[in-house]
Every structure is written in structure tokens, then in C-alpha cells.
């Protein structure tokens, strides 16, 4: 799908203004780009989270397409029900639309952690739907608590940086890889800065013959203690430092590195990313130099492994 500004301008946004996401939050942009990729009637099933809460504060909704939220951990299960209900009603001649796409959306908490079982189950069952995680690296909605999506070294309200702790000590769960291991037709990582890549991949996800998964990186100025104007720039930097490399996995076996990552001659140091955010500030104290070096090493190792999988030298 060619992405052209003039075509984008013609599209009705699926999320209106007047939502109450924080200033500079990238999630509404992520949803906007998702909207640019839609190919027809679409139903969204959303997990509890910032995006859910701040876009549907009764009596207002920013959503212009059919949307349902039930709970935190079940977006994929709700989507299963929506997909199969449409299939059943169509089988019985009671459904008018030829094709309706179903998208489930969750944050990193709702996807990496509490909704992981429901996601895995839905992928295994093979429902035709797209699951998108907007990953802002913590439970930002409940006040910045660590999740399986939180980076090592990241300070949250449940992984404080203190005299003896450097923020979160553990690695980030390699979710896109775990999802790809389900051998579903399509998995892709995206970020809002690379909007052409984002829209193209999302459209591929919709067109996949079975479940598809999109891992969208989504900067959060409030939780990350970053400048509100830098959110899109930080998304770019996450790609350039290898913290959020861009790639696709087809049928769980064919790994393809995407242009923006592939074009990098070498990764920028993670320090450049860390320096931009209050949540990593403590890592520059002398006592965490070694820990910071370990994070850098791990990122480089992961990068080499990804290049190998993608057949990129």
C-alpha cells in the first residue's frame, strides 16, 4: 500500500479531537495511523488502559467506529467473540457486511502481562483479527508501574531507582518474538515516527490470512519524564538505538528487517536514548555504570541475533 499525504488527508479520522490523553502522548497518533490503514468496516475491542479510559469518558467518546471495552485482560478474547459472532451470523444469512475487520488493542500491561493468556489462546485458535499493543513501557494508566514491557534500568513506581536498585533489573519480555512463535501469518513491530512503515504493515496485518500482531512503540511523556514535544523523536531514537527494532515475521519463520532498521549502519548508543528521559537519569550515576554497560551489551546481542534471523549482515 503506497502511503501518500493527499490520500491520508482524505480519510476521516477514527479518533476525534477532544479525547483526554495527556499532551504529547503518542498513543492517539498510533491510533490515527492505524486508522489510515483500515480497508473497510472495522470493530475495535479494547483492553482497559490509558487509551481506553481517556477516549471514552462518559458521556463522551472520541471513537468514530464501533468500539467495545470489557475488561483489562480480555481484549483478545472479546475479539474472538466478535469475530465468530459475525461469522456465525453470516453463515445464517443474518449479517449484512461482506467483510468486517476486527482489531483488538491493549497497552503493554494488558498485553505483555495480564492479557497474555487470552492473547495466546486467541492466536492459537486462529481467529481472523489483528491485535495491536501500544507499548508505552509501563502501567502508565495506574500511575507508572513496571510491566513485562518495561526496559531494564527504567524507573517506575514499582521499580524505583534507589541506593541499592537501578530501577527495573529484568529484561523486557520479547513479546513480538513470543507471538511469532505461535506461527501466525503476520507479526510486525512499528513506531509512529516511521508512519509509512507503520501504515503499510498495519494494512498487511489486516490482509493476513489469520491472526496478526502489531507491536507499536508509544512514547509517554508523563511516565517517562520526557519533553512532550519529543515523543515522536523518541520513537525514532528507540529504533536507532536498537531498543525497538523494526521487523516483520511471516508465518513465524520468515524474518524480515524493515527499512528504517535495515538502513542503520550501526546502532546509536542506548545512552542517547536514556539521556532524554527522567526515568533513566539515575543510570548515569557512577554506581550504575556497569549496569548501564550490561544493558548496552544486551541490546547489541539482541540486535546481532535479529540481524542473523533476518539474514542481514
Amino acid at each position: 500500500m503506497a502511503v501518500r499525504l493527499k490520500d491520508m488527508l482524505k480519510r476521516e479520522p477514527i479518533l476525534s479531537s477532544g479525547h483526554r490523553m495527556c499532551a504529547g502522548c503518542a498513543a492517539p497518533t498510533v491510533v490515527k495511523l492505524m486508522g489510515m490503514a483500515l480497508r473497510g468496516p472495522t470493530i475495535v475491542c479494547e483492553a482497559t488502559g490509558c487509551l481506553e479510559v481517556a477516549t471514552t469518558i462518559y458521556p463522551f467518546t472520541a471513537w468514530k467506529i464501533p468500539w467495545i471495552h470489557v475488561a483489562f485482560e480480555n481484549a483478545a478474547a472479546v475479539a474472538s467473540g466478535v469475530v465468530e459472532a459475525i461469522n456465525a451470523m453470516r453463515d445464517k444469512g443474518r449479517y449484512k457486511d461482506e467483510q468486517v475487520d476486527v482489531i483488538a488493542i491493549g497497552g503493554d500491561g494488558g498485553t505483555f502481562d495480564i492479557g497474555f493468556g487470552a492473547l495466546s489462546g486467541a492466536l492459537e485458535r486462529g481467529h481472523k483479527f489483528v491485535y495491536m499493543v501500544y507499548d508505552n513501557g509501563a502501567y502508565q494508566n495506574t500511575g507508572i508501574q513496571r510491566s513485562g514491557g518495561t526496559f531494564p534500568g527504567q524507573e517506575t513506581t514499582t521499580s524505583w531507582a534507589g541506593k541499592v536498585e537501578p530501577g527495573k533489573r529484568q529484561r523486557k519480555k520479547p513479546l513480538a518474538e513470543i507471538v511469532a512463535a505461535h506461527k501466525i501469518p503476520y507479526v510486525a513491530t512499528v513506531d509512529p515516527y516511521h508512519y509509512r512503515d507503520f501504515i503499510t504493515k498495519f494494512r498487511k496485518a489486516l490482509e493476513a490470512d489469520g491472526p496478526a500482531f502489531i507491536h507499536a512503540f508509544s512514547p509517554c511523556p508523563r511516565g517517562w519524564r520526557s519533553d512532550t514535544s519529543k515523543s515522536i523523536e523518541l520513537a525514532k531514537l528507540a529504533v536507532e538505538t536498537g531498543l525497538h527494532p523494526l521487523y516483520e515475521v511471516i508465518d513465524g519463520k520468515e524474518w524480515i528487517m524493515s527499512g528504517p532498521s535495515k538502513r542503520l549502519k550501526e546502532l546509536r548508543p542506548v545512552d542517547e536514548y536514556f539521556k532524554t528521559q527522567g526515568q533513566f537519569k539515575h543510570l548515569f550515576k557512577p554506581e550504575w555504570a556497569e549496569f548501564r554497560a550490561w544493558i548496552q551489551e544486551e541490546v547489541l546481542k539482541d540486535w546481532e541475533e535479529l540481524k542473523r534471523k533476518c539474514g542481514v549482515s
Binding site: S17, G18, H19, R20, I57, Y58, F60, A62, W63, K64
Partner: peptide
């Protein structure tokens, strides 16, 4: 509104009516 003046179960039937909520004042 009263309980019987609104659709059931919190369903919002006007898509995108968040436009009525102006967020410019946050600026």
C-alpha cells in the same frame, strides 16, 4: 441526565462526540 434519559449500560450512540469537550484550555 436521569437514568431513563440515557441509553442503557453506558453505551454512547454519538460517535466522536468528544468534540464537544474542548481540550485547548490545557495548553
Amino acid at each position: 441526565k436521569r437514568f431513563d434519559e440515557i441509553p442503557m449500560a453506558g453505551i454512547i450512540i454519538e460517535p466522536g462526540n468528544a468534540m464537544e469537550y474542548k481540550t485547548g484550555g490545557w495548553r
